[in-house]
Design a protein around this nucleic acid. Structure first.
Lengths: 255, 255
DNA sequence: ATACCATATA
DNA sequence: TATATGGTAT
């Protein structure tokens, strides 16, 4: 339940409506944000649900804000069941209180959404950085108060985030740090070759809406490829964000 | 660190940009507010800093809102270093996390500010009132909801704040009170001769932005002289505000 | 229109 | 100290 809401909070700023693809394996979702700049991919495996049954594969188009509205009507410890009948134009959310004294039924109208499902090749990345998600959130927020874009550079001993704007410039260097007990608080740099890419801070900041989902975030970078920003959903899924880097010409144009 | 932010919060409402005068003795700043009515004076002695080095005396013009923006990018327990190279047009703020896993460098552009450095004579005041800073803040806020000006009258056994406005009038009397353990919670009246002056509440309310800096505030009054409202910064500095009293004619004009 | 920040109250 | 609400900034 709780996670269902966090997932929605994590994606609804970027995408207002999307098709949930349901199959025996679980639920996935993939959508470009409304400005067609970044991409969100959600995957929740069926084994992560207490009960999961899908007799066939199908897709459900939903307005995420309306879905979030309904999920907000569930209490924190309610058991949530999502039901979709074949060929129905609604999806039903069932909220049952712990003692089953209260049963709420919310029906959300489905929508026809034409979705372009983009194949995302599973690449080897030049550099993979894992760091505390709150630290990444803090960095994008701080740099966003100075500039519009951030250059992310990975070398073998650290990752550097730099920006500059009208009032000045800033950079934050995070060194590899394995001296923390909890693995999710470590900063781990896995680099095959150095890489340096520039991104619009605005989108990265939106990505950090997923911070509550996971204590750590994984950032994957390769030259000329979209960055992947990944947050695990417990241990049965993930939310991944993709954002293409700025190329030099684009940076020039903006000035 | 924490104090650096408090000091900025205390002055940036009144002055948006100012010259920081740096010398071996520490850092000072003096500026009129934008409406040229009140004056802010800041002094931080070098011995209050963990490390302080100034090879020569110089002044740095900064936009205080932009400076505050950058200081907000430091975490609460970061070690802050401020660096200025000779003849540079930027000042660098270095934030290092406790374990030094993260190092942030923020560069703020300096500005040329023509500052009129006013000599403030060190007068003997007719009356000096020390009281809890939160109490003074409360009084200016409360009276500000009734009227625009406050008459501050000091007699040997107390200080009276009075105002009146369209909806009515109000006055608050604070008696000398030495019966509190902590000295900073005492109300101490040191009066050579009774004095009664009227001030614009708007500015006094701005002064109380410094309340978080010190548990007590010192108010110094003499006939026809600007009031001094002083907050200590730990035990190595102060923020002082000066505001000229209204004279009868002025009060007439405004009505 | 939305999201973040600051403030005020419980 | 934590949350809720309102105002500001994007």
């Amino acid at each position: 339940m709780f996670e269902a809401r966090l997932v929605l909070e994590a994606v609804k700023e970027l995408i207002t409506e999307a098709n949930f693809e349901v199959s025996g394996g679980g639920i996935t979702l993939q959508a470009m944000d409304s400005s067609h700049v970044s991409l969100v991919a959600l995957s929740l495996r069926s084994d992560g649900f207490e009960h999961f049954r899908a007799d066939r594969s199908f897709s459900m188009g939903m307005n995420l804000n309306n879905m979030a509205k309904m999920l907000k009507c569930a209490a924190n410890d309610d058991v949530i069941t999502m039901k979709a009948e074949e060929n129905s134009d609604v999806v039903t959310f069932l909220f049952e209180s712990a003692g089953q004294g209260r049963v709420s039924e919310f029906e959300l109208k489905l929508m026809d959404i034409t979705s372009e499902n983009l194949g995302i090749p599973d690449t080897e990345y030049s550099a993979t950085v894992s760091m505390p998600s709150t630290e990444f959130q803090r960095i994008t927020k701080d740099l966003g108060s100075i500039g519009d874009t951030v250059e992310i550079s990975v070398t073998k001993d650290g990752v550097k985030f730099s920006t500059n704007g009208d009032i000045g410039s800033a950079n934050v260097i995070c060194r590899q740090n394995l001296n923390v007990e909890k693995q999710e608080e470590q900063t781990v740099i896995d680099m095959h070759e150095p890489v340096s890419l520039t991104f619009a801070l605005r989108y990265l900041t939106s990505f950090t809406k997923a911070t509550a989902l996971s204590p750590s975030v994984v950032i994957k970078l390769s030259k000329e490829l979209p960055v992947v920003v990944e947050y695990k959903v417990a241990d049965f899924g993930y939310v991944r964000y993709y954002l293409a880097p700025k190329i030099e010409d684009e940076e020039m144009e903006e000035q």
